[in-house]
Simulated scan of single mutants.
Amino acid sequence: MTRTWLVTGVSSGFGRLLAEQLLARGDRVAGTVRRPDAVADLRAAHGDAFSVHQLDLTDTGRIRGVVDDAAAALGRLDVVVSNAGYGLFGAAEELSDDQVTHQLDTNLLGSIQLVRAALPHLRAAGGGRVLQVSSSAGQAAWPGSSLYNATKWGIEGFCEAVAAEVAPFGIGVTIVEPGGARTGFGPTGLRFAEPLAAYDGTPAAASRAFRDGGPPGVIGDPARMVAAMIASVDRSPAPLRLVLGSDAWTAMTAALEARLDSVRGQRATAGATDG
């Protein structure tokens, strides 16, 4: 079945691989980039099957118009993949105000507005899918990634609620939870706070290692992860979460079990506040 896809951030990483795999199998793709020349080769190779739209997610006022243009270029939208984003690392105190704002604007507000802009097109098509690329950091928090965690936890809460809102229209929502992957996300997709000496030797300082390319032994195969994302669109009902990577599964289950344990022990004290 040929589908039409809107994928943000197709110049590198998961977005680029998604565009390549989708176009290779005969689907049509509208891809957003900040620099159109970054995908000139795909445009030349695939012609009208690949439309390119310039967008920076922080420019939220342009998002709805870009989504409308993408739908017009393809005739309809079947699947929308909210993929664009980046990682910001450093202790919360180390981050500048501008860094905090830009991270929230890109990963959280931009993603929210993209999904909101896409929903009228999916309803008009009689259904479809939204894939929101999150991270195992959307369920497990680590020192030195507080703002990145904030954006991923935030978008996951948004998507869970939206999934219930749009289910009556035949629209499925899937939160993609990749672990570490050998993509261009690091180090080019990472940004860092200016370190404070006070945090030297603390748990938050461990995130500074990503400046040098991150820890060795990253096990995630990005091509396999992308293939799993594409395959998930054929699953019915849509999986609310798609966990990719044994490291993601381990981190997420440990975090969820610890969170549940901390709540279970408070059943009696919680009830003590009932009127």
Rank of each mutant, 00 (worst) to 15 (best):
W5D: 00
W5K: 01
W5Y: 11
S12F: 04
G13L: 13
R16F: 06
L18D: 01
L22C: 12
V29H: 10
V29P: 07
A30L: 05
D37P: 08
A40K: 06
A45F: 03
H53E: 09
G65D: 15
V67Q: 03
A73H: 02
A73I: 03
R76D: 09
L77K: 07
V80Q: 08
G85Y: 02
Y86A: 08
G90Q: 05
E93T: 08
L95E: 01
D97T: 14
Q99P: 08
T101Y: 04
H102A: 15
H102T: 15
Q113T: 00
L114P: 00
A118Q: 03
P120Q: 03
L147Y: 07
Y148F: 14
A150T: 12
V162Y: 09
V162N: 05
A163P: 10
A167P: 02
P168M: 14
I171F: 07
G172V: 12
V176N: 09
P178G: 11
A181W: 00
R182P: 02
T183Y: 03
P187M: 03
P195G: 08
A198G: 07
Y199F: 14
P216I: 02
G217N: 12
V218Q: 05
I219V: 14
A223K: 09
V226K: 00
V233P: 04
V233W: 04
V233G: 08
S236E: 15
D247C: 09
A251Q: 13
T253V: 11
E257I: 05
R259N: 13
R259I: 05
D261E: 15
D261F: 08
S262I: 04
R267A: 11
